[in-house]
Design a binder for these strands. Sequence first.
DNA 1: CTGAAAGCGCTAACAT
DNA 2: ATGTTAGCGCTTTCAG
Lengths: 348, 348
Amino acid sequence: MRRETRVPRPTIADVARQAQVSKSTVSRVLNGQTSAMRATTHERVEQAIADLGYRPSALARSLTLGRSRTIGLLISDVGNPFYAEVIQGVEDLALSEGYSLFTANTRYDLLRAERLIASLADHEVDGVIVMSSMLSERCVALLRQRGIPAVVIDWPCQVEIGRVGAVRVDYASGIDQAIEHLVSMGHRVVGHLSGPAHLPTSQTRTTAFLEAMAARGLDAQSAPVVTGTLRMEGAGDALASFLAHSPQPTAILAANDQSALGLLFAAHGMGLSIPGDLSLIGLDDIRLASQVSPSLTTIALPRLHLGRMATEMLLGLVQGQAAEPPIATVTTRLVVRSSTAPPMKETR
Amino acid sequence: MRRETRVPRPTIADVARQAQVSKSTVSRVLNGQTSAMRATTHERVEQAIADLGYRPSALARSLTLGRSRTIGLLISDVGNPFYAEVIQGVEDLALSEGYSLFTANTRYDLLRAERLIASLADHEVDGVIVMSSMLSERCVALLRQRGIPAVVIDWPCQVEIGRVGAVRVDYASGIDQAIEHLVSMGHRVVGHLSGPAHLPTSQTRTTAFLEAMAARGLDAQSAPVVTGTLRMEGAGDALASFLAHSPQPTAILAANDQSALGLLFAAHGMGLSIPGDLSLIGLDDIRLASQVSPSLTTIALPRLHLGRMATEMLLGLVQGQAAEPPIATVTTRLVVRSSTAPPMKETR
DNA sequence: CTGAAAGCGCTAACAT
DNA sequence: ATGTTAGCGCTTTCAG
């Protein structure tokens, strides 16, 4: 007794027949153009729709309308905890505006990114949000080439003309607060664990660090800056570098929470006390930051907001009501927790 | 000098005109039905396609073909690090098979899940993969109702007939190894930090734990089982419960890595040494597990594989070549790291 | 070996 | 106030 027959979903024609009206009438009901319609007709159509459990085909609709109410979300790596909330922000707003999301991970692979973008274009997404720092430039170029509106998140480079927007992150504000926090507690030698040098965002953060130091008359020149990976791995080596540096830093600002946590765990492993022997500040405020022990003082990025803003901007571009210039900035702010404290007085 | 004019993408008709052939011929080239075609014709068409930079519209194709080469991925929460790799597994295989992914987060919200499923259905996805333990049952019901093939991941309940498959996780194998590992080191009192009682998967794990204990003649009855949240928060309270228990456990098996790490951090905070004072075993083997200090002994779940299998199964269902019964199981295995050691001999 | 024509499900003029 | 018609871009008989 297997019912192999795939019951085809009802179409607008089925509804029309059932309600004894034309397809146009049904279509009007579907699109709310019901003002100049006889109440009984309206009623009959609604009834038929309900009876048949009819739902319009997004595919067919997209084809006729020329827009798909679909947007692409290009991410470098879902596994990066940083992105999760941004995704939520995007999804929330997109959903509430009736858009669906094609999500795709570039995996930091340009070839893959190209294929994904091609695929998104093939599916006629109305726009794309790009959150893939290393690949953003190429991605945006490809998208522009296909005439697809796009918004880049946290990509400090110049946004050229065209239907491309950008949501920037003002790291400097939070980083400045962080340095102020350390300095006011008495720290004088502060180290910086940066991200890979080729990432624009690493440079931005490092620059902001150096400027914040200089602004307080600290010797930014001799401040130990170690290049890390933005990941937890390898933090042990980085920590060793800091400890070998002279003068030895009493506090370290890491380029992100992951690497800060790497330092934290490495310190644990070496029997170093945080914040007793060393103060630590991260950046991002990922969930984990508040859950480790000691909880991590960090510079919070409003990620949900970031996602929402990007989506809002993209939908603006899609609907042609582009803000000029399509650039927005979100600020960061310090969240003080337990990984920072005044330095011990043995600062040589 | 703004070019406001949205250049419409070339259609199959444009290619046909350019190549001086009919749409049918172009379509044949597009679909590789080129065997019985004059070489010069084929050549001309390829040329025209290249010249125009033509790409077929997935939308139009889906409409005529009746299948969209699109699948939905229903997740409860992207923020859960557990899912990231599964997603990668799904995406990898889907991509290589020419499928695109609609991803959607239920956020553990049934209403939201319903809307998302409706949306997926509206977009005529060919199938859906569900990875949302709490909501799976309802989700599958809704999908079945709309006649959409589905595969559930890690949902231990009965799979009814219909085009629904399941990929199970055999927790018992890894949990048994874990207990064996502890017992062979001399542990006799082992605690279990379980997940919320209403989650089927919590029950599965707890049962496996108790059985593994009993199988070794240990007093499963008096083994302290504390109900946790599967999250890091609240681990402090759980740890306190374990420590207050008599006899006090010398090792704890947590239901997942997150809660194990919660215990780890809580122990740090209380000055307890891991594994000196207490051995700890997690489950999942999330990235973080190998990065914390001490690194976490845990039961590894082959997540990439999980995603791949689910996708493979779904595509099988979609293409009608369903394996009978559509159920697969992946096994788990213990990964020994540094959070486990023999108990101190002061076991009262 | 290739073309003409119908149709997938929907919307939008343009009638009436 | 509602129906008719012509597409949107593609595939697929069916003819030649």
